[in-house]
Write a protein that binds this DNA or RNA. Structure first.
Length: 873
RNA sequence: GGGAGCUUAGCUCAGUUGGGAGAGCAACUGCCCUACAAGCAGUGGGUCACAGGUUCGAGCCCUGUAGCUCCCACCA
């Protein structure tokens, strides 16, 4: 093995080997239980960012774990065409070349989009590989490939035929920049400082009397078709049924009574603009008001705004306010903060607008989707996210699915130009089925990107055909994603799966948080605080990045990226590397024995037992999707138990002459390292694979090896516990040296008062080496160590070290008294519990026994310390 | 208006069936000893936001309060 850990020198190579050997492939195997994860498809516009890195790390860790456990583990990757995001990008690119989208034909534009897909769609895939993602690339899907497109058609037609998709003139969110409708989920609300303009609308026939409306959007007044007051509002009752004159246009509009008008808010009088406000739209429906649209698709005013025709909506706002002021209609202007919806892709303020669009009727789909989660057919982890899901599902409005874009799945609707028939078909029709005319044309719009991603768990497995893959891999096991796309994606997959597959798409939804910067801010382009995972991988390796993203995470919580975390992760991996070098260099030229063939000493049994609990705990945590806890357990075992203790413990044997002892130590080192590497593999796949390839025990690839299983026969409870007493002695001597200022390298003679002489003798070499001692002398009382001895009391012994001048009797007494205090506190605690009748009556027996044992131990230690103190005089 | 999360060592965070407060980083002391100075050994450091309650026992469960963050709805 190379002397230093250098991830760059092997990560790419190992990935290529895995790939060429087909390690990632998952084919139906009826002798195995399937375990399936569908990768949330990254956008083809995307570049790998920390959010992906976290998401992929979670998934890869889980899928590797399950694969090693013997499941038929399928992790299916893919990319999303990202209709609106991609179109925005391409339009931007065109603009740079001075080309307007409108100057291109649809076909020309789509050609550019496909070119984009070819050019950049694969970029993210290459980047995912750098992380070590073990997905089945042979199944790489794309939301607009043939498979997925067929599924989209099928689903659209089914929903249409069931009456769950309809075409309607309703108020939608319009993005004047992208010039398309958006769903409610695609609108982000931001608080903005604006004004509340109080405008006086005169009563018809009066020059003085009028109603004062309060509005934040004076430019929409051209579309006002009424003013509303609350029916219970005494101030305005007398005006109900009368007309007011709409300023500037001088048109009479009625005063209507409607609950929508809040007596407490504003002036209590609301101008009603049905075409440009969702609430007003509803009022309009109740009162049969005309719907007057006064804006164009690009956010400019139309001809109904008279002289303001063609003016931008915000320019118009200013101009209208000026004119109203001049006309004497502006009564008051007050500052006002309100939230304004923005397009989630281009961040332009959206315009609520009446428009004819395609909608999915949500109520019938939402109910079963709610029940599925209530019935735990799908469970959210952590559970609290189910509440967010329920809240959204219970209040969901119909889903606007048509987009006035070109890049996406075209809506499978045709219109007959001759008879007006509307045709919804899975296959492109050539003639009208009703009148036979060939003059038909397809709906111009495309579908919301999320319409196709909603089908992802089954469209990628061959739906609508009854494929063997669908039967075997569906429903999938766990969906791993961030809590920020519950509405966009998770919820829609759930109702789609239930509706079209009759089964929920996944059993668990594992939610993780978002990766923030070192100051806790969201990483974003505009802040420029994003960290490029590829740069980090280049610097520290993919394993270190993966490790750092999982270390210390609690499921569902946000995490903060920091370079220091990656550095400490790299330090750990370096530790693994070097420990492996130690083991492997000692293996050279030797026949490696099995641990069953060698005589195991206390230390061997201790580390083997420790390994068993680590295996048990890591597996338990991973099964509960607690990746942070699993990683911590594996990390602590590797570093604290194996490296810091066991490896050091083997040195006397390995550097000695007894070949049997060497064989024993090496057998255990190899066995434990082999297991530990496997335990760690799902988290840090590259380095474990690299080291494994050098192991004398290696059989094929570690990624395909069996995950270690807890073996109770390898748990030597008694010997392991006894050995911890030996470790206590070693720790005591080390501490004594530091506390008395004795150089650690100085070899000292240990005087030990103990009842466990046999145990200590058997481990004498370990104690001498690790404690830095030259000899052990068993004595019957502390005085035998002489006057200048410093002492420590541990559970199985009193350890004394003669320190000559280094020991100051007063200091030594103070130190011992300090230790006595600690022991006394423990005695009080345990004794208190044991004298608490409630505790004795109600606590489990096991706990009571443990407390009793502790009390005995501490009482004994107390005695020893007191003896030592009295020896000091 | 509704809901969620967070508040634990100087910093970043774990602590998932209630049973002796933990890690990493930082700090301090001492060590280049043939796996590793990306290291080793040791030390110090906490009223677990606050106030109540349940319990033999609460960082953990319940109620309330405060601060911070987020989501949803409303916003004429």
């Amino acid at each position: 093995m190379e002397k230093s850990y250098d991830p760059k020198s092997f990560e790419d190579e190992i990935y290529k080997q895995w790939e060429s050997e087909g390690c990632f492939r998952a084919e139906r195997d009826d002798n195995k239980v399937p375990f399936t994860i569908m990768m949330p498809p990254p956008n083809i516009t995307g570049q790998l960012h920390m959010g992906h890195a976290l998401d992929e790390t979670y998934q890869d860790t889980l899928i590797r774990f399950k694969r090693m456990q013997g499941y038929c583990a399928l992790w299916l990757p893919g990319t999303d065409h990202a209709s609106i995001a991609t179109e925005v990008k391409i339009v931007e690119q065109l603009k740079k070349q001075g080309i307007e989208k409108e100057s291109l034909t649809r076909e020309q534009f789509l050609k550019l989009a496909w070119d984009w897909k070819e050019k950049y769609g694969g970029r993210i895939v290459t980047q995912l590989k750098k992380l070590g993602s073990s997905c089945d690339w042979s199944r790489l899907a794309f939301t607009m490939d043939e498979k997925c497109s067929r599924a989209v058609r099928e689903v659209f037609v089914n929903l249409y035929n069931k009456g769950l998709i309809y075409h309607g003139n309703r108020i939608i969110n319009w993005c004047p920049q992208c010039r398309t409708a958006l769903s409610d989920a695609e609108v982000e609300y931001v608080d903005e400082n604006s004004h509340f303009w109080h405008l006086k609308y005169f009563i018809e026939g009066s020059d003085t009397e009028g109603l004062i409306v309060a509005t934040t959007r004076p430019e929409t007044m051209f579309g006002d078709t009424a003013v509303a007051v609350n029916p219970a509002d005494e101030r305005y009752k007398k005006y109900i049924g009368k007309n007011v004159i709409l300023p500037i246009v001088n048109k009479p509009i009625p005063v209507v009574a409607d609950e929508h008008a809040d007596m407490e808010y504003g002036t209590g009088v609301v101008k009603i603009t049905p075409a440009h406000d969702p609430n007003d739209f509803e009022v309009g429906l109740r009162h049969n008001l005309p719907v007057v649209k006064v804006m164009n698709e690009d956010g400019t005013m139309n001809e109904l705004a008279g002289k303001y025709c063609g003016m931008d909506r915000y320019e118009c706002r200013k101009a209208v306010v000026e004119e109203l002021k001049a006309l004497g209609n502006l009564v008051k202007t007050e500052p006002h903060t309100h939230s304004v919806g923005h397009c989630y892709r281009c961040h332009t303020a959206i315009e609520p607008m009446v428009s004819k669009q395609w909608f999915v009727k949500m109520k019938p789909l939402a109910r079963p989707a709610i029940n599925a989660v209530l019935d735990k057919k799908t469970s959210f982890i952590p559970e609290r996210f189910a509440k967010i899901y329920f809240n959204w599902m219970e209040n969901v409005k119909d889903w606007c699915i048509s987009r006035q874009l070109w890049w996406g799945h075209r809506i499978p609707i045709w219109y007959c130009d001759d008879c007006g028939e509307v045709i919804c078909a899975k296959e492109d029709p050539t003639v009208c089925p009703k009148c036979g005319s060939s003059h038909i044309h397809q709906d111009e719009d495309v579908l919301d990107t999320w319409f196709s991603s909603a089908l992802w768990p089954f469209s990628t497995l061959g739906f609508p055909d009854d494929t063997s893959d669908l039967e075997y891999f569906y429903p999938t096991d766990v969906l791993v994603t961030g809590y920020d796309i519950i509405f966009f994606w998770v919820a829609r997959m759930i109702f789609s799966g239930i509706e079209h597959m009759r089964k929920v798409p996944f059993r668990y939804v594992l939610m993780h948080g978002i990766v923030r910067d070192e100051q806790g801010r969201k990483m974003s382009k505009s802040l420029g605080n994003g960290i490029d995972p590829l740069v980090i991988i280049d610097k520290y390796g993919a394993d270190a990045l993966r490790f750092s993203l999982l270390q210390g995470v609690a499921t569902g919580n946000d995490i903060r990226y920091s370079d220091a975390k990656v550095q400490s992760a790299a330090a750990f991996i370096n530790k693994v590397w070097n420990a492996s070098r130690y083991v492997l260099s000692n293996c050279e030229g030797r026949q490696i024995k099995d641990i069953k063939e060698v005589k195991l000493n206390h230390a061997d049994k201790w580390i083997i037992s420790k390994l068993q609990s680590a295996i048990r705990d890591v597996t338990l945590a991973l099964n509960k999707f607690e990746l942070g806890i699993a990683l911590e357990t594996a990390h602590d075992f590797m570093w604290d138990d194996f490296c810091d203790w066991y490896i050091e413990l083997t040195k006397s044997a390995l550097w000695g002459d007894d070949e049997n002892k060497k064989d024993g130590a090496i057998a255990v080192l190899v066995y434990v390292l082999d297991s530990a590497l496997k335990l760690l593999h799902p988290f840090i796949p590259f380095v474990t694979e690299k080291i494994y390839s050098e192991m004398p025990t290696a059989k094929g690839r570690i990624m395909l090896a069996a995950y270690p299983r807890y073996n109770s026969r390898l748990t030597y409870r008694k010997e392991a516990a006894a050995f911890e007493g030996v470790m206590d002695i070693i720790k005591a001597v080390r501490a004594l040296k530091t506390e008395t200022g004795c150089a650690p390298s100085k070899k000292v003679t240990l005087y030990i008062v103990t009842e466990s002489k046999r145990l200590i003798s058997a481990n004498e070499n370990c104690i001498l080496r690790l404690a830095g001692a030259s000899a052990i002398k068993f004595v019957s009382s502390p005085e035998a160590a002489g006057e200048n001895a410093a002492a420590k009391v541990v559970s199985c012994a009193t350890v004394l070290v003669p320190m000559g001048d280094l020991v100051d009797a007063d200091k030594e007494r103070a130190r011992l008294e300090g230790e006595l205090d600690k022991v006394l506190a423990e005695i009080r605690r345990a004794d208190g519990k044991l004298h608490n009748s409630g505790f004795m009556a109600k606590a489990p027996k096991k706990l009571v026994d443990e407390e009793r044992a502790k009390l005995d131990k501490y009482l004994e230690m107390k005695e020893r310390i007191e003896k030592q103190l009295s020896a000091l005089g």
